[in-house]
Design a protein around this nucleic acid. Structure first.
Length: 423
RNA sequence: GGAGAGAUGCCUGAGUGGCCGAAAGGAACAGUUUGCUAAACUGUCGUACUGGCAACGGUACCGAGGGUUCGAAUCCCUCUCUCUCCGCCA
């Protein structure tokens, strides 16, 4: 959520940012927020004034009672009645104005960083770099959904029986390579100084709001109505919410956490072409890195996280590219996002396997995550990135590393899974 | 799930209607003293909104939300959570 004083003082910056995102009705919305803010402040001022008068009267009455002057006290009580009625009205008005203001404020996305490319969609994303050689496959090479059947390592039909489409069952070497990747990713993060956490994988409404999934992405999460809990779409939600309502001592910064969790996404309305096999699932595994940084350091941290993710892809020997998302394609809460995509040789397309973002103070404002930096209380910056999401990595390994003899496991994973070939 | 107890500032903990934004101790921070460390002493030590160039003010907050009252941390109601005991259980 954008900070109100920031909108007040930087209206043009905010408007320019919203335009970059192609946010509809930017001008009207900002005007509305500012008008509500003015009303709110006027009301609060008036209310505070009335309350100050009431407090003074109450003090006087107390003094009179103590002095035993009942008559004067009773007379003073009568005078408080109108103040009381007025303050009640004003308090109601204030509450309403705050609620109205909040409801508009939550519809405003984050302001994009200056380096974010102009654009409406994924077409306009900037390719920052491409790394590695796209492999040439042997004749008869197959897409991963054929390979998993051929080697019997993932069973979609079985998942349908147990749960539904998009909930695959990993079997044998399929299950073992998943476990291997999780451990590999976690170990690499530990080496990079991240502290491992195991958060809950269902969260309450406050948590969903804190990181910005609610109210924006309500329909994308599975919801347990009986207990009012959401299945997490990413570990970002529970891990970042560890720091909700927290004032971190400056010497504890930066915070670097890593966690492995399953992730659940309803993906309502997004099924169609290009979603075969592992390309899009309702449940998948992901290792996530989360950082909390002082404002001045967050972009350096973002680059470091990008390098970390790229390091993983290099070690896995997968051709990849890095995109800087355009204003129109970026997530609601992000100020700058890099997407990492691996090459899927049989599908002949890039698959997103990581998204690394700096949210600046957008989440911190909702989370009330602050620190006293140089004596001044201020919102911190939150960042996170997938390091990495498993299914598409697996898809890419299967497709890129297939030979007529079987699938070669990247050497870095061999110690983790205990085999070097799927055949 | 049943019964009981409780929720106060970074922590412990006092506070049962006005003198309480809140005692006291601890921690932390700054300074004095000191060969270093420690100790001792002194000071600082909540957050949010809001007015003001500032100095300095106003308001709110003692789990959350309502209520009683001129006045609520303190009384009443509802909810949430925590702890103890019992039950169930990976």
């Amino acid at each position: 959520m954008l900070q109100l004083p920031f909108i007040r003082d930087n209206k043009e910056t905010v408007l320019a940012g919203l335009r970059k995102r192609h946010f509809p009705n930017a001008d009207a919305t900002v005007e509305q927020v500012l008008a509500l803010d003015q009303q709110r402040r006027d009301t609060q001022r008036e209310l505070d004034d009335i309350l100050a008068q009431s407090n003074a009267k109450a003090g006087q009455i107390g003094a009179l009672m103590k002095a035993g002057d009942k008559t004067a006290a009773e007379a003073a009580k009568v005078e408080t009645a109108s103040l009381k009625a007025r303050s009640k009205d004003l308090a109601d008005t204030l509450r309403q104005l705050e609620a109205d203001q909040q409801s508009v404020l939550v519809t405003l996305p984050n302001i994009p960083h200056t380096s974010v490319p102009e654009g409406r969609s994924a077409e306009d994303n900037e390719v920052v770099l491409e790394h590695g050689e796209k492999p040439t496959l042997h004749a008869g090479a197959q897409p991963h959904w054929e390979l998993i059947k051929k080697y019997d390592i993932i069973d979609f039909e079985l998942g349908v029986k147990i749960s539904g489409a998009g909930f695959p069952v990993y079997k044998g070497k399929g299950a073992r390579i998943q476990r291997a990747m999780i451990n590999f990713f976690l170990d690499e993060a530990l080496k990079a100084g991240y502290i491992e956490v195991q958060p809950p994988i269902v969260v309450n409404e406050d948590s969903g709001f804190g990181t910005g999934q609610l109210p924006d992405k309500e329909g994308q999460m599975y919801y347990v109505t009986e207990d009012k809990l959401y299945l997490i779409p990413t570990a970002e939600v529970p891990i970042t919410n560890i720091y909700r309502d927290v004032i971190l001592p400056e010497n504890q910064l930066p915070v670097k956490n890593v966690g492995y969790t399953p992730c659940f996404r309803r993906e309502a309305g997004s099924w169609g072409a290009h979603v075969r096999g592992l390309n899009r699932l309702h449940q998948f595994d992901k290792v996530e890195i989360v950082r909390i940084e002082k404002p001045g350091n967050s972009y350096a941290a973002l680059e470091e996280m990008s390098q970390h993710v790229q390091g993983l892809l290099q070690k896995l020997e997968l051709p990849y590219r890095v995109l800087r998302l355009s204003g129109g394609d970026m997530g609601f809460t992000s100020a700058l996002t890099y997407d990492m995509e691996v090459w899927s040789a049989a599908q002949q397309r890039w698959l997103e396997v990581s998204s690394v973002s700096n949210f600046e103070t957008y989440q911190a404002n909702r989370l009330r995550l602050r620190s006293k930096v140089e004596g001044k209380m201020q919102l911190l910056h939150t960042l996170n990135g997938s390091a990495l999401a498993l299914p598409r990595i697996l898809a890419s390994i299967l497709e890129n590393n297939q030979t007529s003899a079987g699938i070669r496991i990247p050497s870095v994973l061999v110690p983790y899974c205990g085999f070097d070939t799927i055949s």
